[in-house]
Write a protein that binds this DNA or RNA. Sequence first.
DNA 1: TTAGCCTTGATT
DNA 2: AATCAAGGCTAA
Length: 441
Amino acid sequence: MADMEETDPEWSEFGHDVQSVQQPSSSCEDERVRKKGRLKDDKNMLKDDKLCRVCGDKALGYNFNAITCESCKAFFRRNALKDQKTSCLFDGNCPIDVRTRRFCPHCRLKRCFDIGMKKDMILDETERRARMAKVLQNRQKRGSKQVFDIKSEPLEIDTEMPDQSSESFPSLSSSSLQPISSWAIPLSPTTKGIKPVEDLTLPTDPDLYRTLSTEDQAVMSELTEIYQSTLGEVITDKKVTDENGYENVNDLVNNSEIAVRRLISFVKKLNDFRLLCQADQIAALKACILNTLLLRSVTFYHVEKDAWITPTGVIPTSILKSATGFIELHDSHTKYCRSLKAVVKDDLHIMAMLQAIVIFNPDGQNIISRSTVSDIQDKYIILLKHYMESIWTFEYARDYYPFVLQKIAELKGLSEEHASVLLQVNPNKIEPLMLEVLNLK
DNA sequence: TTAGCCTTGATT
DNA sequence: AATCAAGGCTAA
């Protein structure tokens, strides 16, 4: 801090004062504020008086959507994302200034949000990796010499890694010679052969990840945005504990109407969808309804509770079993959700791309120009592959990518089984839209 | 954990 | 070229 003040042009104008104010923060701060006031009256320094809106310290500019000092910026970055368990020791309205700001993290963070700092401007895991990858890529471009030096050292696998893993996988201590992928990710019984990705075990070397092209990124974020605003929309606020509704299949089908409406608005926003002729638009839409419902159910499936959590309530799988009477069908459905969710987690990007792949299904009934549909589907398949390579490394993506595609293929069989169940519904009790869309009549 | 300083890609 | 606003690193 003292350093900054000495080099600050404002201070150089008051050289003799600087000497007398050599001590730490508290009184120094007062001095500074006083001087600021004076300087503001001076001619040229008007815009240079940015103060942190959180604590009043000197600010350099915007951080996460608000003018803050460096320390509050770092504070926000460190704390905004973790779910706030700590609370204020007092009344929740502690004064926050440059001296007191460290006393109550709760109130400091609260103030951060109050003055408009936005936590979604903090880069997430994926974005951070993309950023680092870009830096590295540029370095390689601009200097192949340094890269050489760095590349010759990094095999870190000596003492640290086995130690860390011995906690969770004690029995594998002898396998340190095997490639990382074979031990770092535990086998899961729910995903026969494919192991869920554990973020912590992913390599840190950016070389192993794909850097998404700006075009890929643009296409993907647009798609995800559309998906999120329609099909992916999740309401999480209410906790419905009473397992009401859903007495029978009719209710379930009618409830799906909401999802279908969302599918329609999703599709309407897709530029690629407009490339299809009218007839194919309808055919593609109809053909993917059940697939969409099933795919979407993965989002709502809660593994621990063995239930689907929807905006309208919790649906334990047991109810579905009795409702349909097809126990094995629901076992396979549940299993499907479990295995796909283990890999996809709650990644909206992946869900959005899978949804696109499901829509542009060249195999769909009554599609006329199948190759057009297939071309569009290819685009999203490749995009999905690239994305996986960018978040999981090329090596892991090689395994997960076919796995996920396989899951998409499995949708067909699964939805056909469900379709047979739908035959037993009573058309009189089904909403017109669903009748129309499911060809029930 | 804090907070200052540094490196960077993007934007102007 | 200068500025902005992210993340990283690291004494204290």
